[in-house]
Simulated assay, not measured.
Amino acid sequence: MDAQLDEKALESTLAESLDDLAPDIKTVSEDEFAEVVGGALEAVGGTLLFKMRVENGENGEHVAAACIGDAGNRQFLLLT
């Protein structure tokens, strides 16, 4: 029975430790998102195709599509 208690205590301690590691969720404004995406695309010579905000329940996410490269070397990116 002590082994079961030790396992429960270990599980509890591990769960608490993992909660401490969870990142804080930061809300990003549309302007901040546009600035970061624009800077990243400028650095790699990419082109913004579109950006939008997608509602997800109470929270929303900013999403953008972009591409880098030309013709056969073109790659499409989905940025969140």
Rank of each mutant, 00 (worst) to 15 (best):
S17W: 07
A34I: 01
E55I: 02
V63A: 06
V54I: 13
L14Y: 10
E11H: 10
K8R: 14
A3G: 00
K26N: 08
L21H: 13
E42A: 12
E16G: 04
A15N: 07
K8V: 01
A15Q: 10
V28C: 09
V36R: 13
P23Y: 15
L14T: 09
L18K: 14
G45C: 01
F33H: 02
K8N: 06
T27L: 05
N73L: 10
L5G: 01
A22G: 08
E30H: 00
K51G: 04
E30W: 01
A65C: 01
E16P: 01
L77W: 15
G46C: 08
A43E: 14
D20W: 13
R74D: 10
E30Q: 06
A40L: 12
D19G: 01
N56L: 08
N59L: 07
E32I: 00
L5P: 02
V36H: 12
S12Y: 12
L79V: 10
N56T: 05
V37T: 12
E11W: 04
S29P: 06
A3W: 03
Q75C: 09
G72L: 14
G45A: 03
E55S: 10
C67W: 08
V63N: 05
M52K: 14
Q4V: 02
V44G: 03
G69I: 03
V44L: 10
L79Q: 05
F33I: 00
Q4G: 00
E55N: 07
A43I: 03
E16R: 15
N56G: 03
V36M: 07
T47S: 09
P23K: 14
G46T: 11
N56K: 12
N59A: 05
A3L: 02
L77P: 03
S29L: 07
E32V: 00
L49I: 09
V54P: 02
D24R: 13
D20A: 15
T27Q: 09
T47L: 04
